[in-house]
Design a binder for these strands. Structure first.
Lengths: 139, 139
DNA sequence: TATTGTTATACTCTATAACTATA
DNA sequence: TATAGTTATAGAGTATAACAATA
């Protein structure tokens, strides 16, 4: 007998995650002198698309009260800015600055580098993995 | 033209990770009234295999000074215990208690549940994903 | 009354540096 | 001298609750 294949696959993904990805996220954030959540917030803010604080909280899966601090720190470095909303004066829209956009791209380039176990797979396996993951996320 | 398949595959894995796994880790830890790092520490401590604090720090990818607090909190709940090492009186060996083992198994059962995108894949895709991940981690 | 974002509070994780007790 | 773990300190993320401004 054996475990269900989805559980086995997921277990292996968790292993990769914990042994390679987790430490790397911290390393990349440190390279750019950012805390991980600040980095994730920057990633969530696509250029040209303002987001209300509440949406940012949703995207980061954390409470709105945290976002105040995270946004404070990014704003004090000139990477993002708070703008008023013309529709509802309670909400504040967050947008990346030009400097934030440049940093954002550098981070994306580093994060998208696959960890060694994935990079060393045979090309055919890489293609198959990509296709399976695409099917998983499409449904 | 297109991105290299390993980068594409990795990008999709990150997406799954961030949208499904990350929030779930917090949720599961909260279920058991643990902070995430406490949960990871418990996971690292296999029953019957004591680990020095330093090894635990390595496994958690964090500084040794943090481990003191993490171990303190787990020990005060009776989930793990510090033991002296017969060989070197400087080192403290960490071991799960029986209660810790029970909690550890409950957590493992919850964590190993694959997120919906993986669980809903066709059986053939699940098997292929498992095999590719196994090849990735074996090398 | 309800909602958006802030502030206050308390706890956890994080690293660095200084310390202790051993080696 | 060097190492294992602790303590002190300071910064960051976390949620809850109370609050101001606005709807």
């Amino acid at each position: 007998m054996s475990t269900a294949p989805d559980r086995e696959a997921w277990g292996l993904m968790l292993e990769l995650l914990f042994s390679h990805h987790r430490p790397r996220v911290w390393g990349i954030a440190a390279e750019f002198d950012l805390a991980p959540m600040q980095m994730f917030a920057l990633k969530a803010l696509e250029p040209g698309r303002e987001l209300p604080m509440s949406a940012l909280a949703g995207s980061l899966h954390c409470d709105a009260s945290n976002v105040t601090g995270i946004v404070d720190r990014l704003e004090s470095r000139g990477l993002i800015e708070r703008r008023s909303s013309p529709e509802d004066r309670r909400v504040k829209m967050i947008a990346v600055t030009e400097e934030g956009q440049r940093l954002r791209e550098q981070i994306a380039a580093r994060m998208s580098e696959p960890p060694p176990p994935i990079a060393k797979l045979a090309l055919q396996d890489q293609r198959e993995l990509r296709d399976i993951m695409a099917r998983a996320l499409r449904s």
